[in-house]
Design a protein around this nucleic acid. Structure first.
Lengths: 147, 147
DNA sequence: AAATGATTTGCAATATTGTTGCAATATTTT
DNA sequence: AAAATATTGCAACAATATTGCAAATCATTT
């Protein structure tokens, strides 16, 4: 729990039970989580509203970043240390496995730069790859979340 | 309206008023639409449920494709002719303007291939660039949708 | 360690968004 | 034009998201 404490402190946030618990979940998950994953996780009992507000606060503080999806949810994943409040350095590729539904940050795969038509000014780029992840090619038991 | 008729016929779908009307909106929009854009558009009066089902049908038929977002919505945009049912060829970059909130398909900008870590098998890739679009750099009146 | 002030949390109420079954209507086929 | 098929709209429901406010928690100062 020490790590959680430091992350929150460094972000200038109050250290509360809810925030530590939710951070714990992200560290345990080793992958992206949706709001529903957190809210419905058996071992926690945090109000829906608090989960919404905590996720929003974490995004604004640069603790987690959002991953776009095509299913009316937003996925969230831990940022690396290089992230700062208001300016995310999450320009790595995200991989959504269509078998186990786990989403991984491929921290070592940077999003390539593309040449845009004249007049388009890029600020941030996201890249989402769907396919089969390494765990599902040679299967073994999956950790949380099991969506 | 002839164009709409042909698109629906070609996709093997019944030609109904609702479907033609929604197709009209996409052609008028020249950009991506969310469910809410269609449902709340002043000049149409189609039941929510029909809109949901029409969008789903259009995706399955390869008439429109989905664009992932980080705001609990799914955006939809017309496919080019090369799209076929069940096998979208929409591997172009999508540009979301943070000023006017319009989303453009950059049909001429292909999504580059990235090298994934061993064991990850890609099936489909999406790339979303956020920034300022050409209309907002040198502003002039914006067409529907105004979100 | 206790008191104070600031922040966060949970509850309640409400709003918005998405889903399902089914009867009525519209479309396609014969 | 009639029969068969597919689509639509309604109603009910389910799930998800937002807001205000009082109670509880946390940080700071003494």
């Amino acid at each position: 729990m020490l790590q959680q404490f430091e992350i929150l402190k460094k972000a200038g946030l109050s250290v509360t039970e809810s925030r530590k618990t939710i951070l714990d979940l992200f560290f345990a998950a080793q992958g992206a989580l949706a709001h529903a994953d957190i809210e419905k996780h058996s071992s926690i009992n945090i109000d829906r509203v608090t989960v919404y507000r905590t996720l929003q606060t974490f995004v604004e503080s640069g603790i987690i970043h959002q991953i776009p999806t095509t299913d009316n949810t937003i996925l969230y994943a831990l940022c690396k240390d290089s992230c700062e409040a208001g300016h995310h350095h999450d320009e790595h590729v995200h991989f959504i496995c269509t078998t186990c539904n786990k989403t991984n940050c491929l921290d070592d795969v940077m999003v390539p730069t593309v040449k845009l038509p004249n007049g388009f000014l890029p600020i941030q780029t996201a890249m989402i790859v769907k396919g089969t992840c390494i765990d599902c090619k040679s299967p073994h038991p999956q950790p949380f979340p099991q969506r």
